[in-house]
């Protein structure tokens, strides 16, 4: 005898009340409890009595300990990704908030750290290919986004600091990186929503789908501004401000709702970094003025002369 979807929902809610918030662990332990109940139903025991018996032998402390240990394993698994993300944002913030000679190089390192974060994420997707075949494609997309953002920033760095003419391709590559990562994150949450059981899980993913869908839309608009640059040049500043505002609001909502989704944080960080360096906002910061850029150019010329 198979359990109804409403009973499975009820099991998941009970597990959540006992401290299991992680959706994957809820799913696994929910399946175990459901199998146990179905076994009792097959023996002629009623559903409510089966429920009482299963939850009587499942001790709350054991469940909490299992949840704690699982979270510890996840923290270890995502530790390096989180570390690189913090390094990325830290270096980026310092490079713009404080004016010093090597600030631009620090900004470059922050973009390389972002690329490394994306590479680590793509490896995590590839390792999880047995869970869902689409993880291979999501991993490939994340890896492509990493390569594009790193090469895009290298070209941007050469333009700003050495006046190398890249014919605007630095912007193209970074925006394309933003589009691809937004698409990866959007498709990931759509898949997760499709796989999740219960209305609670689906509602939670609906939020992520809405926000990542908005990021994807903004990324596509940014991309479309490139071929229509001559027409759009007077309006691009509106798009830039909208993206920065959406990033800030999304970040505040994630913090307020205490949602810790690493993939979404990475997308927000990439979106913010790429948009910020193309925004007029950077000129308001100590390291964003033209003087700083000229200093770096002079410093580099002195280095070359000395050699």
């Amino acid at each position: 005898m198979k359990l109804k979807p409403s009973t499975i929902d009820r099991i998941k809610k009970a597990l959540e009340q006992q401290g299991i918030r992680n959706r994957y662990l809820q799913s696994e332990m929910g399946d175990h409890i459901a199998c146990d109940m179905e076994h009792m139903l097959d023996q002629g025991i009623g559903e409510e009595e089966a429920w009482d018996q299963v939850f009587a032998k499942t001790r709350g402390e054991e469940i909490k300990a299992t949840a704690g240990q699982y979270q510890g394993i996840l923290n270890a698994r995502y530790y390096r990704i989180k570390l690189f993300l913090w390094v990325t944002f830290g270096l980026f913030a310092v490079s713009w908030l404080f004016s010093f000679r090597t600030g631009q190089f620090m900004s470059a390192v922050s973009f390389m750290a972002m690329g490394t974060t994306l590479i680590l994420l793509s490896l995590d997707f590839f390792r999880s290919h047995r869970h869902h075949r689409s993880n291979i494609w999501l991993g490939a997309g994340t890896l492509l986004s990493a390569l594009l953002v790193m090469s895009g920033f290298i070209l941007f760095f050469l333009v700003v600091n050495y006046r190398v003419n890249t014919h605007g391709h630095s912007v193209d590559l970074m925006i394309f990186s933003y589009v691809i990562l937004s698409l990866v994150v959007f498709l990931y949450f759509i898949r997760q929503r499709r796989l999740s059981q219960g209305s609670g899980g689906r509602n939670r993913y609906s939020w992520f789908i809405a926000f990542s869908g908005l990021q994807l839309l903004l990324a596509i608009l940014s991309f479309l501004s490139l071929p229509f640059y001559t027409w759009a040049v007077d309006y691009i500043w509106i798009l830039i401000w909208v993206i920065l505002a959406v990033d800030l609001i999304s970040l505040l909502l994630l913090i307020f709702k205490r949602i810790r989704n690493i993939l979404f944080f990475v997308l927000l960080t990439l979106s913010f970094m790429i948009t910020f360096i193309h925004s007029p906002l950077r000129r308001l910061l100590p390291a964003g003025g033209p003087t700083q850029q000229t200093e770096v150019l002079n410093y580099s010329s002195r280095e070359i002369s000395a050699r």
Partner: peptide, 18 residues
């Protein structure tokens, strides 16, 4: 987590089985 076991998921009877 030690890499000794690998996992895969399959939808079975209104839920996901690992």
């Amino acid at each position: 987590s030690e890499g000794i076991l690998e996992t895969s998921s399959q939808a079975v009877d209104n839920r996901l089985r690992k």
